[in-house]
Each structure stands twice: as C-alpha cells, then as structure tokens.
Write a protein that binds this DNA or RNA. Structure first.
Lengths: 326, 326
DNA sequence: GTGAAAGCGCTAACAT
DNA sequence: ATGTTAGCGCTTTCAC
C-alpha cells in the first residue's frame, strides 16, 4: 500500500480511503490512485483490512450440499445481492451425511470472524445450533432456527397445494417420501398429513434420505405392492427423480401408472423427458432476500430475530394426471 | 486468547502454540488449554492468525460453476485431502457465462493472500491468466495453463476412446457437440477429429455452450435432418442430457435411434432411466491430487510448473448400441 | 486532503 | 516448558 501511495504521490491514509469509496477523497485523486494500483497489480490485503477494521464488509455463507442444485440457485441469489451491496463472501460447505463437516464449516465461519453468516440448509438440531448464539450471527435459509433470523418458505402450504393438486386429479392412495425428521424441516410432512386427513384419506409416510439413489431403492418396494400408490409426493426434487428412476426400471410410465410431485423446482426437473410437477421453493429469491437481511443485520445487530416467510407455488407439468382407472 | 490463557493459568504464547499442535507444549497442558477454550466457546481468530504468520495453512479454491456437479465431485476430493493435511479453504465461485465473475473470484483470492489456489474449470484465456503470475500461485484443475501447475485429464485420449467405441459399434455419422473453443479445452475436440479421420470418416463439429438447454436446442435440428447422425458425442454430461432431452422430445429412442456418449461421469448419468455411456474424468481424484500438489507447492514454492495427467476411462452403459439398420 | 501513530489479535523469535 | 515482545498490513483517529 505504501508503494502505491508513493507512486501516486499521496499519503498512505488516502490510498486506504480510496479503496473503500470512502468519504473525503476527491474523484480525481481516487481515480489516479486506483489507476496506479491497477498498474502495479496491487490488490489490498483483505486479511489485514479485516483485522484492522471493526466493521468489515464480509459475509459468511454456508451451503449444505454442492450436489443439490437448489443450493446453487440460492447462492446465485446471495451473490446477486452481494454484488449490489459491495460485499464479499467467505464460503463454506457442509454435507448431507456428516454433521461433523457441518460443524466444521460453521466453526470455520466463527474463526473467520464474519459478522453475519447466511446458512442454507442447516441440518444440525436446534439445540446444537443454539450453541452458536453470541459467537455467530446467523441468517438461516429454508429453515427456521429458534433465536436466529431466517428466510423460509411456507412448507406446510407447499405440501398442501401439492397434495390438493393430486387429490383434485382423483388420487386417493398418495404416499409421501418424507425427509428424515430433522428440526426445522417438519413442515412438508405436516402439510401432507393435514391435507390427507382433511380429505379423509390415510396418510402413508416413508422416510427417505436426500439422495436420488435412496429414493430409487425405497420407491421400488412401494411400486411392487399389489395395492400400490397412484401418486408419490417427495420432499425434494432429487428424491422425485429417484422415484422416476424406480418407475422406469419397472417398465411403468409416468403419469399413466403413477403421478409424481417433487419439491424445489430445480432445473433438473424441467427437461422434456422429465417434465416434473413440483413445488417451486423460489430458491434464488430466498438467497437474495437472505443476503439483504444479513446486510441489515450487520448494519444494525440489535432487535429481535426476524423470520421472513415466502410462499411456494405449484408448477404443474407432465408428471401428474388422473390416476389409472381401477 | 488472553482470557483463555488466564483461565487455564498459562501464558498467552502457550495457548497459541497449543492450538497449532505445535512443538513444545506438554500433552497435559495442551489438553487443559483446549478444554478451557472449548468451555469458553473460544475459537481462534484466523484473520489475526493469518496476518501474523507468514506461512499459514489456508488454500484458496475456485470452482467455475455450482450448477455442474462435476465441480462438486472435485471439491469433495479437495476437501478429503484438506482434512488429512489440516488445511482450511477460502472458497470462491465463478460462472460459465461471466468472465467478470471469474476475474472477481480470482482477485478475491489474491486479496485473501492465500499462498496457493486450486482452480477448477478456469475459462479465462491463457493471456489473461498470465497476469496472475507472481500474484497468485495457481494449481489449475482439468485445464493446463502455461506457466502454472496443473492436474489434468488426457482429453484427447478420452475423446478417442469415446469415438472408437462408437465406431466399433458400427457408427459412421458421429457428430461432436463441442465446447466453445477456449484455451486449454481443445483436447476433446482434437481427439474426436483425429479419431474420425483415422477411421476415414468426416468430422462434424457443432459448438455448444455448457448448459443442458443449449444442447437441447442445438441437437434438435441435427435430429430433424434427413441424414441425421446415428451417434452424438458431447463435451460434457450436461450437454449429453440435453441431447437425450431432444431425442425424447421427438419421440425417438436411445440407443435404438441414436447413440449418445457424454463426458465426466457425473452422478446424474447413472440412474436407470438415463444410463448414459460416458467418459469418466475421475473428478474426485483430480481434486484430491490437486490438493496434494497445492500443499506441496505451499511448502516448496520453487521449481518448474508441474503438470500431472490422469487417464480417463470409458464407462459403457445403455445409451450406446449399434446404429439402426439403413 | 495530509501525516503520524495507536491498535486489531494473533505468531514467532528470543529469553528464561 | 513457559513468558516477553516485536511485528503482520491495514484502519482509524487526530491534529494539521
């Protein structure tokens, strides 16, 4: 930095100011400073900058799983916001089958001293996350966590419209491939149960992990039963794809033999060969809004936790139709 | 840190040492220090640690695209290595349609002063990347970049075995849906051309972006031609899926009407409904090896750039068969 | 708009 | 095995 100051013929402090569009630097000197820095290939040392400044512009981000595109969509939303707000990210990644990695990712955000972290897809129990209070300011995405800010989607509603869609088509034997019963992710399961009971139908839940192959394996037996379901509603798109796999593997057809409804509306559901009816989580918007909230929080940490709820919508495509005649 | 030292009844320096499994702390005091730190919810401030230490254990990582699972696989490999080597990551993400974002991600690694960065899927031209010399020590993954270390796969070979597989099945009209001609990504294209010419066949190249939808749109017209190809070899799995989409949209079948070979062997190619023949890039292993190389480089920065080449293998599944009889 | 100077929370060299 | 101390490269007063 000193080199740049000397080269541009200004003081050290001015260079520092110029780099953060700060108040008190004339437009022309600012331009000159940035130009000489560019020319010298100088990039400010963010490590030193962050140590020195109380209030830095870095946001932490946690994404549960790089193998599920819904997190890529959320990240795009966050990045979109960060660009507008001039923020930088410290990104960390977890895993659907390792609480260990999730803890490590979160701890690493604590060690990085980000003033706010946006966490998408937290899987740890509420009780464990409570331990981060006071050490990490969290904005949870897609899951409400007691005591923390959150940007969530109304999962009960999403499940309800999915099930009602199937019922209105005439389905009665509707199975729900539910996620493991994790804190904060019970909404879809509840929405399903309520919608079924409201229609006087018997809920049939099967708990399933997050992977396509696991859904394939669990859906198989369901399809082989004499009284097989006429529709399956899954907790996410990946597992819906697994159900499609199971259907195809048996030489059955969607939607003639089985209707399938997914959840998330990831891009993998759109292609003509798939054309999956699904509930749109609006992941990009969730990410975008979480970034806004995080910036707000970093500017004003006081106040009660805020929970913003988005409303999901049903995207009807070709994987749902009236059940086969009996 | 001072608080922990006081609480544990030791000096400040000892706490610092204890946290980095350093030499000179007795097992018992180390345990006691870590225990009290844990109890107080203390996590060392990495920002300060990194500023103070010349040689820190942080690796930069750049991933081109979160929407392509091949990068998730590579990342898993890197993380696997980092765990063993006790390294932490600074992760940044680019985009297949924005050199701007890629530059920003790389610059952000410079600003973070990582001593080595592992970059998977670089898309910027060689000339521009050359500008990072001296400012960022790069280990490029999946692409060779002049002047930098790299862990690559033999793309010429991969394309060759893909094409030879098709030829051996009897195909003669084989189209290659090639990637945009970017520095460092010409191997698959070249392998295709050579293999075709060697067999006395006329190469037919169509340049295509990285998305499934773009492949769908470009493959359509090919399939509608009177003398349509009997096989299509694509530059990655995503575009192969796009080709499958185009085939299904026309009511045609794979492999009866068209054989398709992808590239990467991402998990999306495996399900029964897809069952795509593809070239395995071994992304996990590439990532794993890149991490090793990065650590080596950070420990000994001297020496000429190293390029390690992996050999891809063909995974024959159900999307390839003999061409339809004429 | 400038220049000097006090940290930020650690690490690492040196003492003990 | 433990204590002391000078930085790391910035940001941020503060008096000019």
């Amino acid at each position: 930095m000193a080199d740049v100051a000397r080269e541009a013929g200004v003081s050290l402090a001015l260079v520092s100011l110029a780099f953060r569009d700060a108040y008190g630097v004339s437009k022309s000197t600012r331009a000159r400073i940035l130009a000489t820095a560019e020319e010298m290939g100088y990039q400010p040392n963010r490590v030193a900058a962050r140590l020195a400044s109380k209030t830095d512009r870095t946001l932490g981000v946690f994404l549960l799983d790089l193998h599920n595109e819904v997190f890529a969509d959320m990240f795009d939303g966050m990045r979109d916001g960060a660009r507008e707000n001039g923020r930088e990210f410290v990104l960390t990644v977890g895993s659907v089958n390792s609480g260990e990695l999730e803890r490590h990712a979160l701890d690493s955000l604590v060690r990085a001293r980000v003033d706010v972290a946006i966490a998408a897809g937290l899987l740890l129990p509420d009780a464990e996350l409570a331990g981060y209070r006071g050490r990490l300011r969290l904005v949870s995405v897609a899951r409400a966590v007691p005591g923390f800010d959150a940007v969530v989607s109304d999962n009960v509603h999403g499940a309800t419209i999915a099930v009602e869609h199937l019922i209105s088509l005439g389905h009665r034997r509707i199975v729900h491939l539910a996620s493991p019963p994790t804190d904060g992710y019970l909404g879809r399961r509840q929405g399903y149960i309520r919608a079924m009971e409201k229609a006087g139908l018997a809920p049939h839940l099967v708990t399933c992990g997050y992977s396509r192959t696991e859904a394939l394996e669990l859906a198989g037996p369901l399809l082989d039963k004499p009284e097989r379901p006429t529709a399956i509603f899954t907790h996410n798109d990946q597992t819906a794809l697994g159900v499609l796999d199971a259907v195809h593997a048996r030489g059955l057809r969607v939607p003639e033999d089985l209707s399938v409804v997914g959840y998330d509306n990831t891009s993998a559901t759109k292609p003509p060969g798939i054309d999956l009816t699904t509930v749109d989580l609006h992941p990009f918007d969730l990410g975008r809004r979480a970034e806004d909230l995080a910036v707000q929080r970093s500017e004003d940490p006081s106040g009660e936790p805020v929970v913003e709820t988005f409303t999901p919508s049903l995207v009807v495509r070709a994987s749902t139709a009236a059940p086969p005649a009996l």
